[in-house]
């Protein structure tokens, strides 16, 4: 049975809320660093959020990288291949898909393509909310349904929501 995890940009999350929303734990940025460039030396595991292919490739060579977030879900083939080789997961940001804007349909369509292409190249794909406020948080059930809406089957969708467990941050 899967255990579900989420990562948010908030300072702290009450443990009770995480349990209500169906997660084993919701990580905050106090627990997992989210960086936009690869540090010279990192004492702890980090997630890199960048569109820069050079930074992403550099991060994949680091032992401390726990995952990658590519803003706007841009498809970068060589990053997918390198992520598969190094077994580093890529994460889709759910709060970007639920944010009301005229670009929401485009963002959802891009996430669909990102997921199918990444799976085609054999990279592991996860989904996290990365929400900056309580309004953008989602329950594990919502994340699973959203993953299914962008093309994952149910078993894979469940795996996507539990993927933080495999990143050595749990």
């Amino acid at each position: 049975m899967f255990k579900y995890y989420d990562l948010v940009y908030l300072e702290s999350i009450p443990e009770k809320l995480a349990e209500r929303l169906g997660y084993k734990k919701i990580f905050t940025t106090k627990e997992i660093n989210i960086l936009d460039s690869v540090p010279h030396s990192s004492p702890a595991k980090f997630i890199l959020a960048s569109k820069n292919p050079g930074e992403l490739m550099k991060a994949l060579k680091s032992n401390e990288v726990a995952g990658l977030v590519i803003p706007d879900n841009e498809v970068i083939r060589k990053v997918f291949e390198a992520a598969r080789e190094s077994s580093v997961p890529l994460f889709i940001t759910a709060s970007d898909l639920t944010m009301p804007s005229r670009y929401r349909p485009r963002n959802i369509a891009r996430a669909r393509i990102f997921l199918s292409q990444a799976r085609r190249y054999g990279a592991d794909i996860g989904i996290i909310t990365l929400s900056k406020s309580k309004e953008y948080m989602m329950s594990s059930m919502q994340l699973i349904s959203l993953s299914m809406a962008i093309g994952a089957d149910e078993a894979y969708a469940r795996k996507m929501v539990s993927l933080l467990e495999t990143c050595d941050v749990v």
Binding site: R20, T98, R104, E135, M137, Q142
Partner: peptide, 14 residues
């Protein structure tokens, strides 16, 4: 998950 405001007030539903 897509409903983020009701009557102009920010809100999230889980």
């Amino acid at each position: 998950s897509m409903v983020k405001q009701v009557n102009g007030r920010p809100i999230g539903f889980y």
